[in-house]
Simulated assay, not measured.
Amino acid sequence: MIDRRSVLALAVASGAVRVSANPVQGDPTEILPLWPGRPPGSPANLPAERYVERAPQGQPHDRYADQIASPSITVFRPDQPNGNAVLIAPGGGYVRVVTDKEGYETARWLTARGVTAFVLRYRLPGGGWAHRADVPLQDAQRAMRLIRAGAASYRVDPRRIAVMGFSAGGHVAASLAVRHAMSVYTPVDAADRLSARPDVAALLYPVISMGAHAHAGSRNELIGKMPADADVVAYSPDHHVSVDTPPTILIHAADDDVVPVENSLGMFDALRARRIAAEVHVFQSGGHGFGLRLPPTNTAMRWPELFLVFAQTHGFVV
Rank of each mutant, 00 (worst) to 15 (best):
S183R: 14
R197W: 11
A44C: 07
D238A: 15
V280M: 01
A69L: 03
L306G: 06
D3G: 08
D244Y: 14
A174L: 05
V280H: 02
M226R: 14
A190K: 15
A196V: 00
H314R: 08
G91C: 03
I161F: 08
V178P: 13
V318C: 14
S242V: 06
F307M: 07
G169T: 09
L294N: 02
V261E: 03
V156E: 06
P90K: 00
H314T: 09
P81A: 00
P71Y: 00
A44K: 14
R18N: 10
L306W: 08
N84Q: 00
Q59R: 15
W35C: 08
R108C: 04
P206Y: 03
P36K: 01
V207C: 03
L194C: 09
T106G: 01
A254E: 14
V98Q: 03
G169Q: 07
A48F: 09
W109I: 08
L176V: 03
V200S: 05
E105C: 00
H215K: 06
P125S: 07
G15L: 02
T116H: 06
M226V: 13
P237E: 04
T299E: 09
R160M: 06
G150D: 15
V163A: 15
K225D: 11
A149Q: 12
L294C: 04
Q25I: 14
A117D: 00
V309E: 00
H288V: 13
V17I: 06
E105R: 00
D257A: 15
V17P: 01
T116A: 12
M210P: 04
L222E: 03
D192P: 13
D189R: 12
I31D: 10
H213T: 11
R274P: 05
R159F: 08
R159D: 15
R5P: 03
P136K: 10
I88A: 02
A311V: 13
